[in-house]
Structure formats: C-alpha cells, structure tokens
C-alpha cells in the first residue's frame, strides 16, 4: 500500500495526529521558553548558581528520552501531561544555556555605557542585553523546538498521541508504510520549524 493512498484513506486521522503533535511541541516549547528565558536571565545576575543549574539541566538532557518517560510514569502516570513534562525538561537546557551565554556575551563596554547613561539593572536588561542577545536566545528556542518534534514521537508510547502513534504501530506490525506515514510528516515539521525560526533569528541578529 502506498503512502499517498494511506493518507487519502486516513485523512482525518492523519490531520488529527499532526495537530496533536504540533500541540505537544508548541505547548512544551512555549512552557520551556517561559521558564527558561527568565531562568537564564537570573543566572547572569547570580553567576554562583550557574554551575549547579546548568549542570542539572545537562544531566536531564543526557537521560535517554525513553528512560525519562520511565522515570516520570510512576510519578505522573501515563498520558499527555507526562509527555509535556518530559518535553519541557528536554527543551530547558538549550533555552537556559543560550539565554545565559547570549546575555553574558554582550560587549562589556556596551553594558558599561548603559550603566554610565544611568540605566537601572532592569532597563539595562530590557533595553540593551535582551535585544542584543535576542538572536542567540532564539537559536536556543529553535534547537529546543527541533529536538521536541523528534522526542514527541516517543510520546505515543505513553498514550500522548502524535505522529509517533503511526511509528509505533508500524514497528509493531512490521509495516514500513505506516512507519513512514508517521516519520515523514514529523521530519518535515522539524525542518519547517528549523527554517522558520532560523529566518527569524537572522532578522534579529545585530549587524555591526
């Protein structure tokens, strides 16, 4: 059975899974951004915390995704929110790290100019550091999004839905078409997110 005829016969289901997948990725990356950017900003103000926070985030990052689901299930049970939690954990490191390095990488002379003009620390962050670090921060969000698209396929294993549903079903019944039916849209989704966010990133990058 060809891929196209599979899609033609299962259009509603396919669109549903794509939507579910997008929702999973958008929700978790969004949450990771809301947590990660302020956390990265905080680390630039509390450099003493940097080692432990980034270290912890690093450790989470190295846990294989299936194992992370395994750890979370006894705590959160199976389902959508467990998958979201795991995806947030994965997305945090690149976002926190890039926010930190982006802000820390702002030319100290520019920072001092801001202080010399009488900016408060908050104004310095809002008017100078965040705008100058924007493209680096966005690069972190881009990496997190692309990783999430991939990891989200595993969410199907714990009943969170998404395109992984076809992949796992295909593996179970040894059906290549079914595997591809899940894998191809997921890959395209990752490429699209990478491209769109990359474009935005270049627009935010600061020409000298």
């Amino acid at each position: 059975m060809s891929l196209l005829s599979f899609y033609a016969r299962n259009t509603t289901e396919v669109l549903g899974l794509i939507w579910q997948h997008l929702y999973l990725v958008a929700l978790s990356t969004g949450a990771a951004t809301i947590i990660g950017v302020p956390l990265g900003m905080l680390l630039t103000r509390r450099p003493a915390w940097r080692g432990s926070v980034l270290g912890l985030a690093n450790i989470f990052q190295t846990v294989p995704s299936l194992a992370l689901f395994g750890i979370l299930i006894p705590i959160l049970g199976i389902g959508f929110w467990t998958a979201v939690t795991a995806l947030v954990v994965y997305a945090l490191l690149p976002i926190v790290r890039n926010t930190y390095t982006g802000i820390a990488g702002v030319d100290p002379a520019v920072r001092e100019a801001g202080r010399g003009m009488g900016m408060t620390d908050g104004e310095l962050l809002r008017l100078v550091e965040l705008p100058l670090a924007a493209s680096v921060i966005l690069a972190g969000i881009r990496v997190a999004t692309v990783v999430s698209v991939g990891v989200a396929t595993i969410g199907a294993a714990i009943g969170a839905g998404g395109l992984g549903v076809y992949i796992f079903r295909g593996v179970a019944v040894v059906d290549d078409t079914l595997i591809l039916a899940g894998a191809i849209p997921a890959a395209l989704m990752a490429l699209a997110a990478d491209g769109a966010l990359g474009l935005l990133e270049r627009r935010l990058a600061w020409h000298r």
Partner: peptide, 15 residues
Amino acid sequence: RRRIGYVIQEVGLFP
C-alpha cells in the same frame, strides 16, 4: 548618572 553627561571612549553608542 542621569544628571551627568558622559561621552565614552571609543565604543559607547548602542549598536
């Protein structure tokens, strides 16, 4: 600092 004008050596304008 807002009551003291400051012209900075070399860098200084916000890019």
